[in-house]
Design a protein around this nucleic acid. Sequence first.
DNA 1: AATCCCAACAACCGCCGTCAC
DNA 2: TGTGACGGCGGTTGTTGGGAT
Length: 237
Amino acid sequence: MERSSEEEMLITKGPWTEQEDSLLFNYITVHGEGHWNSVARYTGLKRTGKSCRLRWLNYLRPNVRRGNITLQEQLLILDLHSRWGNRWSKIAEHLPGRTDNEIKNYWRTRVVKQAKQLKCDVNSKQFRDTLRFVWMPRMLERIRAQASSSAQAHQSSLISNSNTQAHSGLLSSALHAHAPSLSDSSASYNLMGADAGSCSSHSYYSDIAGNGFGGADLWTDQNICFLQHQLAHHDLF
DNA sequence: AATCCCAACAACCGCCGTCAC
DNA sequence: TGTGACGGCGGTTGTTGGGAT
């Protein structure tokens, strides 16, 4: 059925207002998610069902984490993207609180941009190999360094903390992840073992993504230079 | 102070799969 | 089996805020 032009004219587009957010939030709090076209109809919102769904999932939904993608999350995104490609929603499943939209934006604004800066196709084997065998192990080293300094700094306070066991579990997860040394170009990068689709790996991803270590940006000028150098000598792969 | 540029993010669009009829 | 409604996904575009000039 085609929407009449009169109806078409009534559809609001663009940024959501506080009142709209409030209407949508209250409705879903009472009635739950789903039936998005009904949501639009019953709340009186002049929005499409799709627009309501998107607003809820990307912004209003409880537990949505926004901004400051941590080092661990960056590493996860790179790793999962190397496995699944642009399957943003699938990747998002392993980053609690992150939306596919946010991950997609991160990829486009950071990774693709840097690939361009390196005069490299983001989908080329050269770039992917550099990420996988050089860049990701490097990130992991940084995560380890952060984790150990953080652990030292908080050791005494953690002892009496009821979360100590869970926290050290995170650390051991990160520290057990195998990464080849930078000089070991023949070693394969294996972050979380063979079975990426299992429940245990899901838990592992959640642990890594959910911990609070650092929020540093890896895409510094210094690091880009390093990558450039690696790419210039990509025959080592 | 004005403007320009660019990065980051929010939102829209089009396509596709599923389901009910 | 065909068709329309709906929801989900990925690509793309629009907007905005901050830094540079």
